[in-house]
Amino acid sequence: MEELKQKLKQQIIEALNLQDTKPEDIDDNAALFGDGLGLDSIDSLELMVLLERQYGIKVEDPREGRKILASVQSMAEFIQSKQTA
């Protein structure tokens, strides 16, 4: 799980071109959207693309997407649940 979260942070930084952010700047439970990292709805679509391209997981419903993409923690849990399923 820790390894997955580290990898996710690196992938998020690359996918969203968060130039001045380092993986250690992102708290596992901090909100990615709104006040946290300050991401918006287009970023959320890009993160869904990340999940599909890197982990082969397709998120169909944008409403479901919001819950999954709430934080690095929730993303990692979702990925793990899909991978063990």
Binding site: I42, V49, E52
Partner: peptide, 9 residues
């Protein structure tokens, strides 16, 4: 990407 998982930007 064969029309799959496209980045909207």
């Amino acid at each position: 990407y064969q029309e799959r998982a496209l980045n909207p930007t």
